[in-house]
């Protein structure tokens, strides 16, 4: 990994150049005080501090909450249909590593299995990822290091930035796309020395320690998920508390389920896909009313087995990246970290 550094004011200049060349999405704070990814108009407004957006970054461009798929129009000779064109070149700036690993999960799920997803693949090709390493946990629910997913990125990014606290950001280059950004704006960057690098390693270690929960043992927990009878008792307890709102699914960076709906007005319309949640009562219901997972307990089992057991069998790792968003969003405070903790023994 080749390392450079960039001065804070030069980073703003870089963002200013990037916003003109591409669709640049970066964290900005709105007038209500909420920070989330927005299109950059004024680079000086970009928040340069690590943050955990409420909605995972994968929802911004790759697999949105609501996405157009096909437009259609009734004509005298039948319905004419047209696939919706892929999104334009986009740079996503300032995402944390849990979101990057969420995107890597989605890459495996949508792009690398049988029947690659047309819309995902096309949007992904046009995406550049610049992550901002978390120096401290954005909130108390973060446990990415325990799940092996952060807080610093090791692969999958185009550029990774780390705030060194001395007016500089250390820059890791992770891909050809990242290299090109650096080459195109080479006057803004300078070489990072040995001292920078050892300081960076120190920050990385501190950050890892702050997001490691001592009582969580991922390997043991995932192994136990496959065999311990304890999990059945846990599923029942979770489902007793769960109010089936679906917030855990909607905010999860590795939830991939969707529904397909048609919106039609007069003679034309759009087929869209919308994020769906397996916790919702009607998720498995078929036309005619039969519902194979009518009991909340069965849907709870589906969610936890999917996340902590089946994903590992299917894609090589658990779907939980330890971002803690499901707990951030849960109105009754169902805690996946606590589930993993209980399974760790």
């Amino acid at each position: 990994m080749k390392n450079l550094k960039v001065k804070t004011q030069n980073l703003v200049k870089l963002l200013d150049a990037l916003k003109d060349a591409s669709n640049l999405l970066a964290p900005q704070t709105d007038k209500y005080g909420d920070t989330y990814f927005q299109q950059v108009v004024d680079a000086s407004q970009v928040v340069l501090k690590h943050f955990k957006p409420l909605m995972p970054a994968v929802r911004e461009v790759l697999f949105g909450q609501l996405e157009d798929m096909i437009t259609f129009k009734d004509t005298a000779s039948g319905t004419k249909i047209k696939p919706v064109k892929a999104a334009k070149d986009t740079i996503l700036f300032g995402l944390p590593n849990c979101d990057l690993d969420g995107i890597l999960y989605n890459d495996e799920f949508f792009a690398k299995r049988e029947f690659a997803d047309f819309y995902y693949v096309n949007a992904r090709k046009k995406l550049t990822i610049i992550t901002l390493a978390c120096l401290t946990p954005p909130n108390e629910n973060c446990f990415c290091a325990s799940m092996g997913h952060g807080p610093f990125a090791e692969k999958g990014f185009d550029l990774q930035l780390t705030d060194m606290g001395d007016g500089f950001f250390l820059v890791n280059i992770g891909s050809k796309k990242g290299q090109k950004i650096v080459d195109d704006n080479s006057s803004l960057f300078e070489a990072a020395g040995e001292a920078d690098l050892s300081k960076w390693k120190e920050l990385k270690q501190q950050a890892e320690e702050s997001t490691t929960k001592k009582d969580v043992n991922k390997k043991k927990a995932l192994d136990n998920m496959g065999r311990t009878p304890l999990k059945e008792q846990m599923i029942i307890e979770i489902s007793d508390r769960c109010i089936s709102c679906g917030a855990c699914n909607y905010t999860c960076p590795t939830c991939t389920c969707f529904n397909v709906i048609d919106h039609k007005k007069d003679k034309a319309g759009t087929r869209k896909r919308v994020l769906d949640s397996c916790i919702l009562g009607g998720y498995f219901r078929m036309a005619g009313g039969h519902n194979p997972k009518e009991a909340k307990e069965d849907r709870t089992r589906n969610r936890y087995f999917c996340k902590l057991l089946w994903d590992k069998e299917k894609l090589g790792d658990s779907g939980c990246v330890g971002c803690g968003r499901c707990l951030d969003a849960c109105p009754v405070k169902v805690d996946i970290k606590d589930v993993i903790k209980q399974l760790s023994n």
Binding site: D107, K314, G316
Partner: peptide, 11 residues
Amino acid sequence: MKRGKYKASTK
């Protein structure tokens, strides 16, 4: 901590 890795079952 061992890093988590995603690997699809098919090429």
